[in-house]
């Protein structure tokens, strides 16, 4: 085929159906709703949520995961667009991490050192490691399917961002159920669960998001 013929062919297909940003917004919305329904229809929220939410630890747990989810989603929204620098939004991921470090430090200073291990191990670590990845499935699948329409300069990084965002969304939903409120628990088990989803996203993205 001559290049000029190809150009005529492409020109006839000019209009764009739906742009990447809108597709990602839909994937985010659907992912959050589906995962919230999964949470509500299985384990539900913690029974004493109304009272618990007023304590500093629970507020921090929910707030931290939400800030992390927001920062990671902001990255997902530009990672599929070539020619944009990811540096600024990548650095914003440090904000929730700094918060977490401060919370861990203050928890360590408040608690007697005999209680550290018990707070860190919590009561439901294994379930947390299982359920956060489960809750991340819907947003992760949505993000990856949409990013397949994108043009990420680094497919692995795009997949990892999708995994991080999906994991953080799942963590913030799970926080409404989770009975373990210590920042020490958060720093260990939530981090492992979210990093697991991030790794899955990276491994899928590295191959599947190539274009």
């Amino acid at each position: 085929m001559k290049t000029n013929d190809l150009i005529s062919l492409l020109a006839e297909d000019a209009p764009v159906g739906m742009r990447l940003g809108r597709m990602l917004a839909i994937a985010l919305l659907v992912g959050v709703v589906v995962s919230a329904l999964v949470l509500l229809s299985t384990v539900g929220v913690r029974p004493n949520l109304a009272a618990a939410i007023e304590t500093a630890r629970v507020l921090f747990k929910i707030g931290f995961t939400l800030v992390l989810a927001a920062a990671a989603c902001r990255l997902v929204f530009i990672v599929g667009r070539p020619g944009l620098s990811l540096k600024a939004r990548g650095l914003q991921l440090a904000v929730p991490l700094v918060f977490l470090a401060i919370a861990v430090a203050s928890e360590l200073s408040v608690l007697p050192s005999e209680a550290w291990t018990a707070s860190m191990l919590g009561r439901n670590a294994a379930f947390c490691l299982f359920f956060i990845p489960v809750l991340s499935l819907a947003p992760l699948a949505g993000f990856l399917l949409v990013l397949k329409n994108g043009a990420p300069e680094s497919p692995g990084l795009a997949g990892a961002s999708a995994g991080l965002a999906a994991g953080a969304i799942a963590a913030s939903l799970y926080a409404f159920h989770c009975p373990d409120d210590s920042p020490l628990f958060l720093a260990v088990w939530y981090s492992i669960a979210v990093l697991l989803v991030t790794t899955i996203g990276y491994l899928i993205g590295r191959r599947w998001l190539r274009w």
Binding site: M18, G21, R81, N149
Partner: peptide, 18 residues
């Protein structure tokens, strides 16, 4: 991939990256 270009941004960097 033209749906990944943001019409509010310059087209040069997008095109070069693609």
């Amino acid at each position: 991939k033209r749906g990944t270009w943001d019409p509010d941004r310059p087209i040069g960097p997008w095109l070069s990256a693609i």
